[in-house]
Amino acid sequence: MTDTIRILLADDQELVRYGLRMVLEAEPGFEVVGEAGDGALAALAAERLRPHVVLMDVRMPGVDGLEGTRRITASLPETRVLVLTTYDLDDYAFGALSAGASGFLLKDTKPAALIAAIRAVHRGDAVVAPRITAKLIALAAPRLAAGPPKDQEDPLAVLTSRERDVFRLIGDGATNAEIADSLYLAESTVKTHIGRILHKLGLRDRVQAVILAFELGVVGR
């Protein structure tokens, strides 16, 4: 991980890109390396510029941000995509995270929160706006109440008790530091547990772990 975080902006509105550039380039350690007006151009620019983080709009003419995210995460697994949109619709949130995005924020997010989110996804954490998290939890509620089908094999059976605790907290959106505080562990130990969890469950990153936690209905337990 380098000291400077290289950022690509993908939004069809030039004024929005200009505003984001002004905010981000005023932050020490940030460099905006390029801009794109749709998902296809963003994927091409990412291949060429190799940014650490892509700020991706959802609704864009031509190829939208969800498809752009899929292309980037498929070809550049080390590049993190942070979706930044006006719309807090459930389909967009699920679509963005399922496409491989490391976070989903709304455009009314304060600059300080956006900067913190960029740093968070760069170091491997998942970031989801509180309003979106609340909706995801609400959608998972019926599964929380019902539990997994009795005849369905538990995919978490391969995890140890401690790994299950860490997995649940990942699903709740906790950072490594928060997991460490909650379970009285060192952050280095938490990182080791997360690595083992991802390997055992065949997951690419912690965002896929968040999605799986919602699908299994373990969030909030």
Rank of each mutant, 00 (worst) to 15 (best):
L106C: 05
L89F: 15
D154I: 12
L169I: 10
R206A: 10
D38P: 14
E187V: 15
P148H: 08
L9A: 00
K191D: 15
A140W: 01
I137R: 09
K200Y: 00
I5P: 08
L97K: 10
G220L: 08
A209N: 08
V207P: 01
D88P: 15
G100F: 00
P77D: 04
D154M: 11
G147T: 09
T133D: 13
R71C: 02
A101Y: 01
V219Q: 05
D38N: 15
L82V: 03
I132H: 03
K107I: 05
E187C: 13
D108G: 13
A138V: 10
Y184R: 14
K110I: 13
L198K: 01
A99V: 08
V83N: 08
R17K: 12
K110Y: 13
A138W: 06
D165R: 01
F214V: 06
E153R: 13
P111Y: 00
L84P: 08
S102I: 09
Y18N: 15
T85A: 00
A96W: 08
V219H: 03
D88H: 08
S98F: 14
I72T: 05
A99K: 06
A112D: 14
R131T: 12
E27I: 06
R196P: 11
G220M: 04
G124R: 09
V190I: 11
A96Y: 08
A99G: 09
V53W: 00
A40M: 11
T86W: 09
K110L: 15
I5Q: 03
T109C: 15
G124I: 07
A113W: 05
T189H: 01
G124F: 03
R164A: 06
L41Q: 15
Q208V: 04
V158H: 06
P51E: 02
E78V: 07
P61E: 08
V210H: 05
D64T: 07
R196L: 10
P148M: 13
D108V: 10
D108L: 10
L41F: 02
L84N: 09
P149F: 07
D181K: 09
G34I: 10
L84S: 05
F167C: 03
L9T: 04
L114A: 08
R164T: 05
T133Y: 13
L216N: 00
G68S: 07
L8A: 00
K191G: 10
I118C: 03
K110P: 14
P77E: 08
D172S: 10
L106P: 07
A101T: 09
E14V: 13
V121C: 02
H122D: 11
D172P: 12
A180I: 02
A40R: 11
A129N: 02
E67S: 10
K200T: 03
M56D: 01
V58G: 01
L84D: 03
L82W: 02
D64K: 07
L183D: 02
K135N: 09
G39H: 07
